[in-house]
Nucleic acid binder design. Structure first.
Length: 807
RNA sequence: GCCGCUGUGGCGGAAUAGGCAGACGCAAGGGACUUAAAAUCCCUCGCCCUCAAAAGCGUGCCGGUUCGAGUCCGGCCAGCGGCACCA
């Protein structure tokens, strides 16, 4: 069969008959969504193919199972790489992106996926980002978007903001200068308002357990207390702690170097040291700062605070292991009961005061478990939670402490000082402040003619025509926000837009998406576990609370595909020169064979190094199927009444194949599904070679086989299906159903073990109960000779599997 | 460093709920067919010792639970993903 030819033929027919479009039956809808891709490079790479091609087999399987499958496709088209490419080559991001999308669309069409192109999305087009801006304004209206100062990576030499990716070992990737942190006023989305719901709803999701766990840890709920410390000069700051029971052991407190109070309290003789330390801190990234490996450093501010629990005076330090963005940006140091504080105290000679006992006179310090309070006055003898509550109650009398739940999750910073993104639809008016662009004025269009070479200002800030406008409230001159939105904002609602992608009036129609959503199966990389997947959940919940939709979670069920590595076992990258392009194989073998190889050669969720060793083998497999098909095509219906051992075996294999392939396809275990199909073909080929056979049974079996193969080799199966004389698509057929009675045999082979070592096998009737199995085994002549009169202590019978005799 | 995951023949990978490790396939070797090659078909194929059988060893390493561990528990080692401006 000429695969390339038939693929073209069927793709044309599928287009003409609109086979790939959603049929509108929302009662039986199955929304199957693959994470859309960034149109980088300009070519579909193996990772795309692995995600889209194989998910398409799943979607086709679901369709044959009777669902009305909706499988849309689109592009996450804004982002940094296109802008960097523009800086390097001068090619405008819009031009390169649109060209790349066109190439990828062509490749996706040649894949033969069942994508509904009538609902295509490109996030960089005004008809999409208009609604991204609408989402932002809705959040702003709801009080879920706000501005505050936050640090960015700043290269002083290039005068530009750098992405984390562009900072290599603390230096600018372009010029090698030391990168520093610089504060800018930026937009944040209040995802923390939803921290608790985002956490509790995780349990309801049909997601990989590891992903759920990672997201829970990312949200990082901890229950504790907030305690007010006062300085000697009567300034206040708050400390968050989960261990307020250790507060009598505080021997110092630490503020993050960025903490605003630091400037106010630092004494004159310490000022130089503290400022120098803060500058050093600005050079470090968070991963470094939080590394528990790294030697802890800190500097004394010269100021003192009063421990509210016992009135003791303790020194206030700054140290970079305290992050201003977590908790209150201040911690209490209790060296006797915290590993990190212990190390810090040893280094800087802070006293170590034991206030928790493990019951022994000489508790080994640091002792970090719960224990009994000692040297804590009225609280002595209390322990753990009881002690914590008592201390909070006491301090609360004077307003110095309260129970507090803290989350590691931070608000989502969405401002980007870049060109290639959706403009933030806010106007800064000198009189009225931050004013939303009126909805009727959306989209705020991204101007084409900008200078994106880095020179200290955001590209949009340099575009006068864009920047200068009038305030919608007071009509006086005002400036637009010069930043664009993080591309994660674009991708945090696209799954809603797909369902109503061509709506020119609204982002989406509530009634439509309430029927089409949530997504029934979402497929994409595990690298999105904490960010994209959490942002999408947040936006869904926020829109729900504004009445735009009625479901709580966007993605009911989630699967991560694995990563296909280069042949050398490393991640594919241009710089390593190990990139494998799917086109090479698609052009040589056709997309069905390439797809089948990907299905068969890897565990879908694990991926692995690329090798094309087996690609010929799946091509040969399809040849075998075709030969078998051709031999049976012209057969008459002779032998319909022959039902002997061989026929029973054929039925046994066939029905077990249906059962196993159905089960495997449903859980993305494609490699085992193909293995079962190969076994089935082997069995049918063997049967076909018999001199007398039941032709009807054979032909019926081939018919079933084609349907089982169809999701995995769609063009090939469609071709065979039409050769059988069918005029409608095989994808309109119902998936085969197995007969349970035909999947069992009445004889079962048992493994016989003696002292857990396999000694022999024994075929017994399936109908025997445990006691009868034991009797049958112990009476077997062969078993008796193996036992050789040994004393039997115990016999373990596992029905339908094995018998273990302990002697 | 922190959070999460993975580790099985020469290779890709299988092993419902703790029950016969290595399904299915690749590569390799041997054979049939052929003038020859390709294609196709048949056989062998974890390691070790063997003519063969039997025994022994074997799922990254060390230990534990169990009649029985690739699977559960504890401790290591190696690799991968994420760590909030790559998407």
């Amino acid at each position: 069969m000429n695969m390339l030819e038939i693929e073209k033929k069927w793709q044309k027919i599928w287009d003409e008959t609109k086979l790939n479009e959603f049929d509108g039956n929302t009662d039986k809808k199955y929304y199957c969504l693959e994470m859309f891709s960034y149109p980088s490079g300009s070519n579909l790479h193996i990772g795309h193919w692995y995600n889209y091609g194989l998910s398409d087999s799943f979607a086709r399987y679901k369709r044959m199972k009777g669902y009305s499958v909706f499988q849309p496709m689109g592009f996450d088209a804004f982002g940094l790489p296109a802008e960097n490419y523009a800086i390097k080559t001068g090619i405008h991001p819009e031009d390169s992106t649109i060209k790349n999308i066109a190439t990828m669309e062509g490749q996706l069409r040649r894949m033969g996926g069942m994508f509904d192109w009538t609902k295509e999305i490109k996030t960089c087009m005004p008809d999409y980002y208009k609604w991204t801006q609408w989402v932002f304004l809705k959040l702003f209206e709801k009080g879920l978007a706000y501005r505050k100062e936050a640090p960015v990576n700043w290269c002083p030499s290039c005068s530009t903001v750098l992405a984390n990716e562009q900072v290599i070992g603390g230096e600018c990737e372009r010029c090698g200068s030391q990168v520093i942190k610089k504060n800018l006023t930026q937009w944040f989305l209040k995802i923390t308002d939803y921290a608790e719901e985002l956490l509790t709803c995780i349990d309801k999701l049909d997601w990989p357990e590891k992903t759920k766990l990672m997201q829970k840890n990312w949200i990082g709920k901890s229950v504790g207390a907030e305690v007010v410390f006062k300085t000697e000069s009567n300034k206040e700051f708050k400390v968050f702690t989960t261990r307020i029971d250790t507060i009598f052991g505080v021997s110092y407190v630490v503020l993050a170097p960025e903490h605003p109070l630091v400037k106010e309290i630092t004494t004159a003789d310490q000022r130089a040291a503290v400022e120098d330390y803060a500058m050093q801190t600005a050079k470090a990234n968070e991963i470094e700062r939080l590394s528990s490996d790294r030697e802890k450093t800190g500097v004394f501010t010269g100021a003192y605070a009063i421990n509210p629990a016992n009135g003791k005076k303790v020194p206030i330090w700054v140290a970079d292991y305290v992050l201003y963005s977590y908790g209150t940006g201040a911690v209490m140091g209790v060296p006797a009961h915290d590993e990190r504080d212990f190390g810090f105290a040893k280094k800087y000679n802070h006293p170590v005061t034991k206030v928790i006992s493990d019951g022994n006179e000489d508790t080994v310090l640091p002792y970090t478990e719960d224990g009994v309070l000692v040297n804590c006055g009225e609280f002595d003898g209390l322990r753990g939670e009881q002690a914590r509550l008592a201390i909070i109650d006491k301090l609360a009398e004077n307003g110095l402490a309260c129970k507090k739940v803290n989350y590691r999750l931070r608000d989502w910073l969405v401002s980007r000082q870049r060109y290639w993104g959706a403009p933030i639809p806010i106007i800064h008016c000198p009189h009225c402040g931050d004013v939303a662009v009126p909805y009727e004025d959306l989209p705020v269009k991204l101007p084409y003619d900008v200078e994106f070479k880095p020179d200290g200002k955001s590209p949009l800030a340099k575009h006068d025509g864009f920047m200068h406008t009038t305030c919608p409230k007071c009509g006086k001159p005002a400036l637009r926000d010069s930043d664009t939105l993080d591309t994660f904002v674009c991708s945090s609602w696209y799954f809603l837009r797909y369902a109503d992608a061509n709506n020119a009036e609204k982002a989406f129609d509530t009634e439509i998406i309430n029927k089409m959503l949530p997504v029934d199966k979402y497929i994409g990389g595990a690298e999105h576990a904490c960010m994209h997947l959490l942002y999408a959940r947040f936006i869904t919940k926020a829109l729900r609370d504004m009445g735009y939709l009625n479901f709580d979670e966007p993605f009911t069920s989630l699967v991560h595909q694995g990563v296909i590595l280069g042949p050398d076992g490393n991640k594919m990258s241009k710089s390593k020169g190990n990139v494998v392009m799917p086109d090479v194989y698609v052009n040589e073998y056709g997309s069905d064979i390439f797809r089948l190889y990907l299905l068969f050669g890897f565990n879908y969720t694990e991926g692995g190094p690329w090798s094309d060793d087996g690609i010929k083998s799946v091509a040969k497999f399809l040849d075998r199927v075709e030969r078998l098909f051709d031999k049976t095509l012209t057969l008459n219906d002779d032998g319909a009444d022959i039902i002997g051992e061989a026929e029973k075996e054929v039925e046994f294999v066939l029905h077990n194949t249906i059962k196993a392939v159905d089960r495997d396809m449903d859980v993305f275990s494609f490699n085992t599904a193909i293995a079962r199909l190969m076994e089935c073909v082997n069995a049918l080929t063997k049967y076909e070679a018999l001199p007398t056979k039941n032709n009807k049974l054979l032909k019926d079996s081939i018919n079933v086989l084609i349907k089982l193969l169809a999701p995995c080799v769609p063009h090939f199966a469609e071709e065979l299906w039409s050769k059988l004389g069918n005029t409608s698509s095989v994808f309109k057929e119902q998936y085969p159903v197995y007969d349970p009675a035909k999947t069992v045999k009445d004889q079962i082979e048992y493994a016989v073990q003696v002292n857990s070592k396999l000694k022999t096998r024994l075929v017994l009737s399936k109908s025997l109960n445990k006691a009868e199995i034991e009797q049958a085994v112990l009476n077997d002549a062969n078993v008796l000779s193996i036992l050789d009169g040994a004393q039997i202590k115990k016999v373990i019978v596992i029905p339908e599997r094995l018998v273990n005799i302990i002697v």
